[in-house]
Structure formats: structure tokens, C-alpha cells
């Protein structure tokens, strides 16, 4: 399929984001954070825990408007964004299928989801309630929901944390499969370098709080050639370019 949407890239230019607690303590989470993600590109936002990655995504998702600066989302197609959070955030009182369909725009509500559910291994679980799913399966349902909406921009916030190694690996492969079927401009947050090297076209490396961009690491090697050996070579050259990071 053609890459959908997005003559415009994702352009982020956040001057500052400061949290102020009720006790008057203020924490500057982001400072002069600017980067771009080209259309149809899978980018990773890599940084240590607590550096402000989730904060950045929440701003881009429009959930937090208390910041100075600006950003521009890719356009085209539905003009919609989709997100997979750290928590799957499925509605516990709706089945897996209802959860996915409710997120769809009105004109797509009745669309055929067999292919997507099949690919993600959820075909037999469409009528399950989220409480009946393991965390790995719930994450898959959250992925299904995000991809079903055919978004112009996809945000992922550490979607593979707190899974065992094998489940995480399987889920990464599934993510690549559904993403390759319809390459969408994507920004994924992670603090796992190997994961970033496996999945992304470019890695945006963030400094510890307040987050700003340390540099960009482009991964030009096509994904199908990223064998364990190739990944360890990439790791080495990453550490040469960013000594002391992660």
C-alpha cells in the first residue's frame, strides 16, 4: 500500500515545559526541544527514564496545552492521530472488538477488521473483555485499535515495557508487520537502545531532564537486514557517536 497522508512532516519546537506543583515546587521537563520526523518514517525518541519523553508525547497528543512553543502534525488521510500508551487503556466494560471499533471514525465503523485481528493473533479474542487478556494480549488490542483508525500519525509510549523478553520480541515483530502494511509516520518513545535500533529509521537522542535533543542517529540499514550481528555493529557505532548515553 501507499504511504498515506503526510506531505508535511512532524515538526516539534517546544521552547519550555515546566510542571508546577501545588506546593510551589517547579520542575522543568523540556527545554528547547526541537526535532522533525519525515513522512512515513518510524522514529524513536530515546532517553533515560524521567527525562520528559511521556511529557513530550502528551503535548503532541494535545493532552497537555500548558507549554511554550509550537508543533505541527502530519496531515492527510483522516488527519487523525493514534496512540499506544504504556498502559493499554482499553475500556474494561467493552469487548476487544468494541474497543477497536469505538475508536474508528464514523465512516469506518463497519469496516472489515478480520485481517488486522488475524495478523495480531486476536482473531479468537474479539468478544473477550480486557480483564480476560494478559498484558501482552491487551497491548496487541491497543495496537489493533491504533492501526485500525488509519492515522496520519502514530505515537507509541514504551509499548513493550514490563513484558517478558519473548513476548516483547514477538510484539515488536507484530508491530513491524502491521506498520509495514501501511507505513505511517510514527514516533515511539523508549529507553531501550536495542529496541530503537531494531525498529526505527532514525533515533532522536534526548539528554536527561530538561529534555533537549543531543543528536540524531540514522539507521539506514533496511529492517530485514537487521540481524543480531548487524544490531551489535549498530550498537557499537551508536556508542561511538554518543559516548556515555545509555
Amino acid at each position: 500500500m501507499q504511504p498515506v497522508g503526510a506531505a508535511v512532516p512532524l515538526r516539534v519546537d517546544i521552547a519550555e515545559k515546566t510542571f508546577r506543583s501545588a506546593q510551589g515546587v517547579s520542575v522543568t521537563a523540556l527545554k528547547d526541544l526541537s526535532f522533525e520526523v519525515r513522512q512515513g518514517e518510524f522514529a524513536c525518541l530515546l532517553g533515560p527514564s524521567g527525562c520528559g519523553k511521556t511529557t513530550t508525547l502528551r503535548i503532541l497528543l494535545g493532552l497537555d496545552r500548558q507549554f511554550s512553543g509550537s508543533f505541527q502534525l502530519p496531515e492527510g488521510g483522516s488527519n487523525r492521530v493514534a496512540a499506544v500508551f504504556q498502559e493499554p487503556t482499553l475500556l474494561p466494560w467493552r469487548t476487544v472488538e468494541q474497543n477497536v471499533r469505538l475508536a474508528l471514525p464514523k465512516d469506518l465503523r463497519a469496516k472489515n477488521l478480520d485481517g488486522l485481528f488475524d495478523t495480531l493473533g486476536l482473531a479468537g479474542m474479539r468478544s473477550f473483555y480486557p480483564a480476560e487478556l494478559s498484558l501482552g494480549l491487551a497491548r496487541r488490542a491497543a495496537l489493533a485499535r491504533a492501526f485500525a483508525t488509519e492515522p496520519a500519525m502514530l505515537f507509541l509510549d514504551e509499548p513493550f515495557v514490563s513484558l517478558d523478553g519473548r513476548t516483547a520480541e514477538q510484539l515488536r515483530r507484530l508491530l513491524l508487520t502491521v506498520w509495514s502494511a501501511r507505513p505511517t509516520t510514527a514516533l515511539m518513545v523508549t529507553h531501550n537502545l536495542t529496541e530503537a535500533l531494531t525498529l526505527s529509521d532514525r533515533i532522536i537522542v534526548l539528554a536527561p531532564r530538561p529534555a533537549h535533543v543531543l543528536g540524531i542517529f540514522d539507521v539506514r540499514l533496511p529492517r530485514q537486514h537487521r540481524s543480531p550481528q548487524a544490531i551489535s555493529d549498530l550498537l557499537r557505532s551508536f556508542h561511538q557517536k554518543f559516548p556515555g548515553v545509555i
Partner: peptide, 10 residues
Amino acid sequence: RYAEMAAIYR
């Protein structure tokens, strides 16, 4: 979190 999910998916 549910309200935020609903906002993102409009």
C-alpha cells in the same frame, strides 16, 4: 486516562 483516550480517538 479513559477521557484522554476518548479525546485522542475523537
